[in-house]
């Protein structure tokens, strides 16, 4: 699929923006953590869209946030998705 851009996002309603970002983020997160991808994506979607766009373009940024999210999830003792 073509890259997601800020202008594409801006043209969509707010919740659709999160949907678009989630659809792009999920496969990348799933490759890292298949069992927790849904929860991690849900957490990351609470971040500002501009930062999410940056994460899509910067694997280092994404990995950093994913690591943070996992630490928080473990602190909340979230069970793995079956």
């Amino acid at each position: 699929p073509e890259p997601l851009t800020a202008s594409m996002l801006a043209a969509a309603p707010l919740m659709d923006q999160k949907q678009l970002l989630g659809e792009r983020l999920y496969p990348m997160i799933h490759a890292l953590h298949p069992n927790l991808a849904g929860k991690i994506t849900g957490m990351l979607l609470e971040i500002d869209n501009s930062e999410l766009l940056h994460m899509l373009e910067s694997p280092e940024s994404l990995h950093s946030k994913v690591d943070e999210a996992i630490a928080v999830l473990q602190a909340h003792q979230v069970k793995e998705c079956s």
Binding site: M15, G38, G42, L45, H76
Partner: peptide, 26 residues
Amino acid sequence: SNGTNINWPPEFCPGVPWKGLQNIDP
């Protein structure tokens, strides 16, 4: 919400409309 919702965070599923926190805290 009492701030200790054990269902947090909401889970994103590809292809399913994302409702964010509305999923768990109506």
